[in-house]
Deep mutational scan, measured.
Amino acid sequence: DRIFMTRTEALEFLLKAHQTAVDKIGHPSHKQTPADHAAIEALDRLLLDVRARRVDQFQINASAAQIIVTD
C-alpha cells in the first residue's frame, strides 16, 4: 500500500509516531530495551531527513504502508 502526503503531513505523522514511541518507553509498566531507543533514534533521523528534503518516501516498519511525500 502507498499513502501520498504533503511534506507537512508527513512531518506531523512522524512527530506523532515519535511521541508514541517516547510515551511507550516512558510508561512505568514497559521495560526499556535497546531496540526501543534505536527506534526513536531512527525516527529522529527520518524526521530530519524528511524536513531537509533528503527523503521523499519512507516506511516506518515492514508491515506499514509506504509513505510518499509530495510537494
Rank of each mutant, 00 (worst) to 15 (best):
D49I: 03
L14K: 00
N61P: 10
L14T: 00
T20W: 06
L48F: 04
K16M: 11
R53A: 10
E9H: 04
F58N: 00
T6G: 04
R54S: 05
D49L: 11
I3A: 03
S29P: 08
P28R: 07
S63D: 12
R45A: 09
L43A: 01
R7M: 12
N61I: 07
D71N: 06
K24C: 05
T70Y: 09
H37Y: 13
Q59P: 03
R53M: 09
R53I: 03
L11I: 14
R53T: 04
I60G: 01
Q19K: 13
Q57C: 11
I3V: 09
T20H: 13
L15E: 15
D71W: 02
I60E: 02
K24L: 11
A42Y: 15
N61A: 12
I40T: 03
I68G: 01
R7Q: 06
E12H: 08
S63C: 08
T33I: 05
D44M: 15
T70D: 12
F58G: 00
L46Y: 01
I67Y: 06
D44H: 15
T33A: 08
A10E: 00
I40Y: 03
D71L: 05
P28E: 10
L11C: 04
T70M: 14
L15K: 15
A39L: 15
D23L: 04
Q19S: 08
Q57S: 14
E12W: 05
S63A: 11
I25M: 12
A65P: 14
D36G: 04
G26M: 15
I25E: 05
I3E: 03
K24H: 09
Q59A: 05
I67V: 10
V69K: 01
E41F: 03
D23H: 08
A17S: 05
R53K: 13
E41V: 12
E9K: 05
D23F: 02
L14N: 00
H37K: 11
A52R: 08
R53L: 07
T33N: 14
D1Y: 01
I67F: 04
Q66K: 11
I40G: 02
L15H: 13
V55M: 04
T6L: 03
F58R: 00
R7H: 10
A62W: 04
A39N: 11
E12I: 08
A52H: 14
R51F: 07
D1G: 02
D1A: 01
D49R: 03
Q66M: 15
D1R: 00
D36Q: 07
I67D: 00
I60Q: 02
D23R: 12
G26L: 15
H27W: 12
K31H: 12
I60S: 03
I3K: 05
F4D: 02
K16C: 07
A64C: 07
G26E: 10
F58I: 03
Q57G: 07
V55P: 01
A62M: 09
Q32I: 14
A35N: 10
L43T: 01
A21G: 02
V69L: 10
I3R: 05
D56A: 07
A39K: 07
I25S: 07
A52Y: 10
H30M: 07
D23C: 06
A65Y: 10
V50C: 02
I25K: 05
T20P: 01
I60F: 04
L47N: 01
D56H: 15
Q59T: 08
T70K: 11
N61W: 08
H18P: 00
R51S: 14
